[in-house]
Design a protein around this nucleic acid. Structure first.
Length: 492
RNA sequence: GUCCCCAUCGUCUAGCCAGGUCCAGGACACAGGCCUUUCACGCCUGCGACAGGGGUUCGAAUCCCCUUGGGGACGCCA
């Protein structure tokens, strides 16, 4: 495709990385990968009031976790403020911008009045045609000024082709002379952002659709500066179930990338989910490996309409978008076990039940047990919750399971320890033999197969559900099984 | 109020640009069934949408217009 593609992700560090931002980063990263270009990370930290060190760290960690490696940066916008100011001065000197002596109060009043009269609230151009004399007069009087870009007044329009939305045209008369430099001499985002993109050689600006309205203004800056105008691709927004823009403030942790890391998501599964929120192939493929995604990604597949991130704050069954969960479960179920194992390891370490031998002498057993369990899991955290009894003696008995599978059948109180003795008498502990012994016991005592089987499952794992009983027992191991069966009396 | 954008199942979407093969396909969710010692997995079946109205056309989800609905921008925030 085009050579030397350079894209960027330019978050402002005013909070954690949220799903909307992550999605934007994913598309930028993908486009860079697809075209063999560079993905640049720029932290737009010029809002000293709201930018925090913590959120910078959070954003960096979030991107790393997702596996979105940037090729250059992170650059910090705050380091280039002088360049932004110089640019504004250059624009002033060349007559492309002018000084505006209107005070904030005056402007606020006018805006308020406009709102009241239901009129347009564009800047009225009061200072646009000040004579040099008037300007020197005001300056001499020490009146502070902002710098506004002079929008061409010849009745023309800004035209550009958005890669997603197609041809966009905005008349000059609908664009106000916007401020690029504050009265305190500091630049505004609209200027800084464009200047940084020019300096960083950004060729494609892929950002949220909320930037669409800013685009004509930024193109005007590019033109005033004589810079080459990049390609634009505005992506649809991510909305909540009430169709409001996803925001950190309103939705809290549920929309934070770190929330998904903490809740047992596989990073790539989450990327896979994110990419599907507003993008698709005509084959409607749902699951993509990294290589497949890069291979198939194209700006053409971006959807114009906003999409809903189906978070369900109060749903007990789905704490987030069901599709995200389903994709995550798919990966847990199907990814190579050696790729899954490190995530399981991380969960174990977090819980203090990691055994170094799982990477040594017990590796085969560890992998085998993961394979046994993963079929029914949705999150990597399930290995330390639902699957805990397979790896540790420190596990909980589920109240309901004990009630239903043990307490209801008094006979198990004696049967289970007896079974333990029979197991103890075995030479080995293989599935076939276990099955024979248990079937014989069922026959002998005249109980239903399910009674013994489910009783054993609960006594040994604390749960009512799980893998098939015979492989379950071999996975847990002879000693532990015998021990747990003998202790069943304690539960009555 | 001004300007801009969008509109297919509950959700994500395919199809639209180059009208017929679409009484609209897939995924998730949901319901039922099969499998089964449990729960899952898997497989099968079902439920379920072209916002409304005009036009153009032999024919419209696809093209045009209007209405309605939704979203965004309009800050000396980024």
């Amino acid at each position: 495709m085009s050579d030397n593609v350079r894209v960027r992700f330019a978050p402002s560090p005013t909070g954690y990385l949220h799903v909307g931002g992550a999605r934007t980063a994913v598309y930028n990263w993908l486009y860079a990968k697809k075209t063999g270009g560079k993905f640049i990370l720029r932290i737009e930290d010029t809002d000293a009031e709201r930018s925090t060190e913590d959120s910078i760290t959070g954003i960096l960690e979030g991107l790393e976790w997702l596996g979105l490696k940037w090729d250059e940066g992170p650059f910090y916008q705050s380091g280039f403020i002088n360049e932004h100011i110089d640019t504004a001065k250059k624009l002033l000197a060349s007559g492309k911008a002018y000084k505006c002596f209107c005070t904030k109060e005056e402007l606020d009043a006018k805006r308020e009045e406009a709102t009241r009269n239901k009129a347009d609230m564009k800047y009225d151009g009061t200072c646009r045609n000040l004579t040099p004399e008037e300007i020197s007069e005001k300056e001499a009087a020490g009146i502070p000024y902002t710098v506004r870009l002079k929008v061409p007044g010849d009745g023309g329009s800004v035209k550009f082709k958005d890669e997603v939305y197609g041809h966009i045209e905005k008349r000059y008369e609908d664009i106000e002379d916007f401020i690029i430099l504050r009265s305190n001499g500091q630049p505004l985002y609209i200027l800084s952002n464009a200047v940084d993109d020019i300096r960083d050689g950004i060729t494609h600006i892929i950002r949220g659709q909320d930037g669409l309205a800013n685009t004509p203004k930024q193109i005007l800056i590019y033109e005033a500066l004589g810079a080459k105008i990049p390609a634009f691709a505005h992506i649809s927004l991510t909305l909540d179930t009430k169709k409001a823009k996803i925001s950190k403030r309103k939705h809290g942790e549920q929309v934070a990338v770190h929330f998904y890391r903490e809740h047992g998501f596989i990073p790539w599964a989450f990327v896979n989910f994110l990419v599907l929120l507003g993008w698709s192939t005509s084959e409607s493929t749902q699951i993509f490996s990294k290589d497949e995604l890069i291979e198939q990604f194209s700006l053409d597949g971006l959807n114009k309409s906003n999409s809903i991130f189906d978070i369900r704050i109060d749903d007990p069954k789905f704490f987030t978008d069901p599709k995200a969960i389903s994709i995550n479960a798919h990966y847990i179920k199907n990814m190579p076990v050696e790729e899954l194992a490190p995530y399981v390891k991380a969960e174990f370490e977090k819980d203090g039940i990691w055994d170094a031998e799982y990477e040594g002498s017990k590796k085969d057993w560890f992998y085998g047990t993961i394979n046994l369990l993963r079929e029914r899991y949705h999150y990597t955290t399930d290995f330390t919750s639902l699957g805990r009894a397979f790896f540790s003696d420190d596990f909980e008995f589920e109240e309901k399971a004990v009630q239903k599978n043990l307490l209801k059948n008094d006979i198990l109180k004696t049967m289970l320890p007896e079974l333990a003795d029979k197991f103890a008498a075995m030479e080995g502990f293989d599935e076939k033999e276990i099955e024979d012994i248990m079937r014989a016991m069922i026959e002998e005592q005249g109980v239903k197969a399910g009674v013994l089987i489910n009783g054993v499952r609960t006594a040994v794992t604390g749960q009512a559900v799980g893998p098939g009983i015979f492989e379950l027992l071999t996975a847990i191991g002879k000693e532990r099984v015998i021990d747990r069966l003998k202790k069943v009396g304690q539960l009555y």
